[in-house]
Computed example of a mutant assay.
Amino acid sequence: MNKSAVDHFSYTSREYSFSRPFYPVVLYKYLSDITLDNSIAWDCATGNGQAAIGLCKYFKKVIASDASGGQLDYQFNRGNIDYQMFPAENADLKDESIDLVTVAQAAHWFDLDKFYKEVKRVGKRNSILAIWSYGMHKIDDDIDKISARLNVDGDLLEKYWPKETSYVKEDYKTIPFPFKEIAAPKFEMTINWSLDELVSYMQTWSAVKRFSKDKNSNPLNLIIAELEKLWGKRDIQKTVKWDINIRVGKIQR
Rank of each mutant, 00 (worst) to 15 (best):
V199Y: 14
Y116I: 05
W193G: 09
T190A: 14
R149W: 06
M202Q: 08
D140E: 13
P185F: 00
N218T: 04
P178W: 07
S212D: 06
Y167V: 05
I175Y: 03
L129E: 03
K117Y: 14
D142E: 11
A130K: 05
Y201I: 03
W132K: 03
I139D: 01
I131A: 04
E181F: 01
D95K: 04
K163R: 13
A183N: 13
D141H: 14
K138D: 00
V199S: 08
E170F: 11
M189W: 11
E188Y: 15
D144K: 11
I182Q: 05
A148Y: 13
E170W: 07
T204Y: 10
T190D: 12
E158L: 14
A207H: 00
K120I: 05
E164F: 03
E197R: 05
D144A: 09
D171H: 14
Y167D: 10
K114V: 05
D111N: 02
Y160V: 00
Y116A: 02
I191A: 14
L157H: 14
D99Y: 07
M202D: 06
V152R: 14
E197H: 08
Y134E: 03
K117M: 10
P162Y: 04
K169N: 15
F115K: 03
A104C: 10
D141A: 13
D153L: 04
F177T: 00
N216M: 09
L100P: 05
F177P: 02
Y172Q: 09
D153Q: 10
I223W: 12
T165C: 13
A107H: 09
S200C: 01
D95V: 12
K169S: 02
D141E: 15
A207E: 05
D95L: 04
L150C: 06
D99N: 12
N221L: 12
L150E: 07
R121G: 05
V101R: 01
N126I: 01
D155N: 13
Q203S: 08
K138S: 09
N192H: 14
I131H: 13
W132I: 00
D141V: 15
H137T: 11
S97N: 09
S166N: 12
K114F: 12
K124L: 05
L198I: 06
Y201P: 02
F115T: 07
E118Q: 12
K117C: 11
A148H: 15
A130S: 05
I191F: 11
W109T: 01
E181D: 13
L129K: 15
D155K: 08
D113E: 07
H108N: 03
D99R: 15
G135P: 12
V152H: 15
N221V: 00
Y160A: 03
A104I: 03
E158P: 06
S206Y: 12
Q105H: 15
R210Q: 02
L157V: 04
S217N: 05
V199T: 13
D142C: 02
D95M: 10
S97T: 14
N218F: 02
L157W: 02
A183R: 12
